[in-house]
Amino acid sequence: MRHLAARRRSPLALLVVLLLGLAMTGTAYAALQPKAEPGTSVATASTDEIAAGRQLFLANCAFCHGTNAQGAAPEAPEAQAGPSLVGVGAAAVDFQVATGRMPLAAPGVQAPANRDSVLLSQEEITALAAYVDSLGPGPDVPAQEWIDLEGADIANGGALFRTNCAMCHSSSGAGGALTRGKYAPGLMNVEPQHIYEAMVTGPQSMPVFNDANLSPEDKEDVIAFVKDIENGGNSYGGHALGALGPAGDAMFIWTFGIALLIASAVWLGRKAR
């Protein structure tokens, strides 16, 4: 007993207890962390699909991103200055191509969305995404359970949106200007899948929100909040100027009302003379 008591007082005992606590905490976190079902990835793609994706890549993407998706050489002209795609994952490919941002029509500070200019079918986009994902694993296309919005918590999504998204996309999801000619695009009429993919891939100036930042459930809640705004959930009366409800009316009345009062005061002053 005295021998055990002496060991408990050893300086190494505290270190052992600390290491055991960290190991148990890490194991519990890994076991309880929510995980999304894989969507489109090399793990679920066939060899033929990956081969077809490579042919699509060579025909549509290699000019800027290199024949092996390694990116343009440093000395390449601006028109060919595409980044490496190794490790971007299937979600990045689906987001960029399915929204018409890629292939890029012309170099610029930001790739604009243009769903009318989507060149590939969804089947071809899936094959292209599978090929790029085979070069290096990255975020997958989200599983249907995270974008069907069934049972989503709109209130929680609103709180998360105001904390993480509103400073760039505005409180109403209408978008906003950023620095150096860039902008945060509007989120209205955007497919839930593409909103999710943007969160996990961080296109342009957007930060990446992985599962450690926002769980798949949180992402679904944010999307549900955006869709609620799209369906009129952010309208609280008034004329919805700037999608701000009565606050927009108050700003309108203040701006034009104060000008009218000043003009009236000037007119009355001149008339009194």
Rank of each mutant, 00 (worst) to 15 (best):
L4S: 07
R9Y: 12
L12D: 01
A13E: 06
V17N: 00
V17G: 02
L20E: 03
L20I: 11
G21E: 04
A23M: 06
A23E: 07
M24T: 15
T25Q: 06
T27E: 15
A28V: 13
A31Q: 02
E37S: 14
E37Y: 09
E37M: 13
T40I: 02
T44C: 09
T44G: 01
A45K: 11
E49G: 05
I50H: 05
A51T: 08
R54K: 14
L56N: 13
N60I: 01
F63E: 08
C64D: 02
G66I: 03
G71Y: 02
E75F: 10
P77C: 01
E78W: 12
A81G: 08
A81T: 00
G82S: 09
S84W: 06
L85R: 11
L85P: 04
V86C: 07
V88M: 03
G89N: 07
A98K: 00
T99I: 03
G100C: 06
G100N: 03
P103N: 07
L104F: 04
A106N: 04
P107K: 10
V109S: 10
V109N: 15
R115Q: 14
S117Q: 14
L119V: 05
S121N: 00
Q122P: 10
E123L: 13
T126N: 15
A130E: 12
V132M: 11
P137Y: 12
P137M: 10
G138C: 08
D140W: 15
Q144H: 05
Q144A: 07
W146F: 15
I147R: 05
I147H: 01
L149T: 00
G151L: 08
G151E: 01
D153W: 13
G158R: 05
G158E: 12
A159K: 11
L160S: 08
R162M: 11
C165T: 01
C168N: 12
S170Q: 06
T179Q: 09
R180D: 13
G181D: 11
K182V: 08
P185Q: 11
L187V: 05
M188A: 06
N189H: 13
H194I: 09
Y196M: 04
T201G: 00
P203K: 05
Q204D: 14
P207C: 01
D211M: 09
D211Q: 14
A212G: 13
L214Y: 01
P216V: 15
K227D: 04
D228R: 03
D228T: 02
D228F: 06
G232E: 10
G232C: 04
H239D: 07
G242H: 06
D249C: 03
A250Y: 12
M251P: 11
F252R: 00
F252P: 00
I253N: 06
W254Q: 14
G257E: 09
I258F: 15
A265F: 12
W267Q: 14
G269Y: 08
R270Q: 06
